[in-house]
Design a protein around this nucleic acid. Structure first.
Lengths: 151, 151
DNA sequence: TTTTTAATTTATAATTAATATAATTAAAAG
DNA sequence: CTTTTAATTATATTAATTATAAATTAAAAA
């Protein structure tokens, strides 16, 4: 944890940004809830528990900044809010998501499944891929089991 | 065009919705601008040109409805607005997008490039895929050419 | 360490996208 | 033709996000 904070601090400094206590508190929340997909509001409430003086706008600005630095990725699952997802350490690409249309759960896929597809896009469309967003909508294992039981 | 309107009319009726003049005007705009990725506001302004009495809320409701019927897909490219993209006739899945981070252009890929990936997700994660969203971010052909020229 | 300075935060206010409400209108069914 | 139901309009409202100006502070320089 401390290691990653130190790392992010360096990234900030490299772009002549400061690591303020507010920013650090925000990053800590993101690290603690790495598996989740928090909205700005969610992050704000969690940061507030430990640093009650922080303002919502600061959290928004910090998340935007971290997004710029590619520390987090901003995603949108179709409800009205942006969510912020920490990149895995050293990951070149954004990871994928499985969104269950029954229960709303979000699972992550860290493996890069798109290497072949990106090659095709590159060669056949002449498009230089820098990053991707891939989300599958469907029914998760748990909900499938529940459906079978119910019948 | 008339054929597709007729088809959408049937779909509406099948769910006991009506094809009102406002809805038809909205669908016509979507058909005319099939290649574009219009926001609700965009659609509203275009519909207004021909049917000035229409209200913004009606356009929103219509788009929501069409989205429910899978006539259009609601997408979000990361700017704050939802965009509405007409499904290709009879397409089972949503098509893919190439978003250029230089010029902002959006290209469409109709081919389904994800068959293999979906099979993997199905088998290895036990997730029943119903639909997907795939967007590549990168540099389009035109911008690549422009960069080479500039150097 | 102290000073300096540019970056940052705070505390609003303002925007913008989207949705809800109540009254009115239009359409379909009997 | 009358009744019933669905849809639209014209607001008003909510919710998410961004902008602004004054006050504060982290970090580089003296």
């Amino acid at each position: 944890m401390e290691h990653r904070i130190e790392q992010i601090k360096k990234q900030l400094h490299a772009h002549s940004y400061k690591l303020t206590p507010q920013r650090e508190a925000t990053v800590r929340v993101l690290l603690e809830r790495e598996e989740d997909h928090l909205s700005a509001e969610d992050v704000y409430l969690l940061v507030k528990e430990k640093s009650p003086e922080i303002g919502l706008a600061t959290v928004y600005r910090t998340l935007e900044l971290l997004s710029e630095l590619k520390v987090v990725d901003k995603i949108n699952f179709g409800d009205g809010v942006s969510r912020y997802d920490l990149r895995k350490e050293g990951a070149k690409h954004f990871h994928h998501h499985l969104v269950c249309i029954e229960c709303g759960s979000v699972e992550e896929i860290v493996n890069d499944l798109l290497e072949d597809v990106e090659r095709i896009v590159q060669n056949e469309w002449g498009f230089e891929v820098k990053d991707h967003r891939l989300t599958f909508h469907g029914i998760c294992k748990q909900c499938q089991a529940a459906t079978v039981k119910a019948t």
